[in-house]
Write a protein that binds this DNA or RNA. Sequence first.
DNA 1: GGGGGATATTTCGTGTACGAAGTATTACGC
DNA 2: GCGTAATACTTCGTACACGAAATATCCCCC
Lengths: 163, 163
Amino acid sequence: MNRPASSAEPVEASEDLDAIVEAIVFLYTESRRVTKGLAGRYGLTGPQLAVIKMLEPVGKLSLSELSWKIRARNSTVTGIIDRMEREGWVERRRSEDDRRVVHIALTARGKRLASSITIEPVTLFRRVLAELSERDARELSRILTRLARRVRELVVDLPEEGT
Amino acid sequence: MNRPASSAEPVEASEDLDAIVEAIVFLYTESRRVTKGLAGRYGLTGPQLAVIKMLEPVGKLSLSELSWKIRARNSTVTGIIDRMEREGWVERRRSEDDRRVVHIALTARGKRLASSITIEPVTLFRRVLAELSERDARELSRILTRLARRVRELVVDLPEEGT
DNA sequence: GGGGGATATTTCGTGTACGAAGTATTACGC
DNA sequence: GCGTAATACTTCGTACACGAAATATCCCCC
């Protein structure tokens, strides 16, 4: 019941597949855990740290831009910004150009906090990646990018698979 | 503090690193999204589908075993089981051997549901992986496993980095 | 064999995370 | 210009997800 549906050659490197899935899950969840711990030192949560680091270089972003950058939905980010505004790290400003848009900007307190945080949220992850040999980095990038593209293709025509 | 520990050559293949991070995030989140959509067809959430698929082959598991398998904390799984019990898919049974332990088992209704679900939660992911050439699968497995091990090492002595 | 520590689970409080529905504003078609 | 669609954001309800504290039970050792 595990035979591959589409590829002709038999894939018996099943341990490889398991290892890949496990490694990806591990890398992702572990990087989130580390980010959370890091953020905690500054009284922040993981997403809140991400928001601050996104805002620091550019000054302000619309809520939608922020949502896109941290890969969350508007309704999620609304809540995150609510809590950050409550703590006085950011403030909302209605855009003059388009009154539907809300700009999120760091307050003075938020800026001080941002500049006191030296580590990027993804540091650990990237540090480890940077240790890869150039060849391995290239290989990994090539294969993962191909995988992602393939997933994207498959997801478009979602497998309508009734029972 | 960013100098690579093991590789001598400077890593300027920064686009590769970006691509890798992005691909991993994409693959992980997309696989969750697909799982969620799949589970939704059966009136389940992603984690609930995972629980049902874990229970199906073995009959019952303690809450802790379940937590370990789906990589969540006990307090999280308690909630998931609460909701699944409310819907009549699983039931709790106090262990006879050790009265601290709670066994989670599929009900008749849960078993019917489980057997009607043909797709594994990770199917899409694995299908794409299975399309890799054997060489690429081996390479990917090798590199990711090394990355994961390295992250594990680094996380142990967490970077005590005051301000 | 009784007390203290370890273990399994639950409860509680907080913070994401999402989709659906609602509100306000802008853009478009004619 | 006016109605309608599109866009930006918020609100609401539900479901994770986690850590800390509480509870129940077991284990060990004196």
